[in-house]
Design a binder for these strands. Structure first.
Lengths: 107, 107
DNA sequence: CGGGATCCAACCGGATACTG
DNA sequence: CAGTATCCGGTTGGATCCCG
């Protein structure tokens, strides 16, 4: 549990919902998380909801409408992940350098 | 790549090596990461070495000796992960609360 | 539209056995 | 001691079909 940090899609999905700044529908989320399959998105959203990071609101309409939104806990988590994410982005070249050296040394 | 953050064992392994503050042998690492299998530890260490987060030094002795140590990049990464880790630890009860509410509501 | 159900390939990680 | 090699069950995630 709380796999939302390590999970392949969770952080990306959360940031998409958070940046939208208003309730977001399933299909719109799927557009923005791009290559995710609908099965994985469903599973990811359920997990996030389960952990209290997003809310899920179903409207009894035809066609159905379901809206997702970030919770305070979710927003707080994103804020806490941000610094690390920025550091990684800033340091990517160092990882790549190390990787290249490693791969090259045994040629 | 740079899966070292999401990976199941990488962070734990890194922190064990870092806290040891001197070169650490394979078997000692395995003792401290407790339940890890030796296969997974080997794979984890190789990945960390590949990303430049730890060093691996092999001594031509019998029996063999291999020593691992944290690199500056590795130490820096741990420092950047620490705040998030602390926040998660501090907030675990909130996740648990959300989880309990979610599980209980559909009974 | 927002899924659920099913099938399937790929991968992960543990257990065990063997080795230089 | 520090791995490598093999097997194997469980999970992940995509693709497809169906449904209210």
């Amino acid at each position: 549990m709380v796999a939302c940090i390590a999970d392949k899609w969770s952080l990306w999905t959360m940031s998409v919902i958070a940046e939208y700044r208003r309730p977001m529908r399933f299909s719109r989320i799927m557009e923005n998380v791009a290559v995710i399959s609908q099965k994985s998105l469903t599973k990811t959203l359920r997990g996030l909801e389960r952990d209290g990071l997003i809310t899920r609101k179903v409207f009894a309409e035809v066609p159905p409408r379901v809206e997702y939104a970030i919770t305070p806990l979710g927003a707080e988590m994103l804020n806490n992940v941000a610094p690390l994410w920025l550091w990684v982005a800033k340091s990517v070249h160092r990882f790549q350098g190390a990787r290249a050296a490693f791969d090259g040394r045994s040629v």
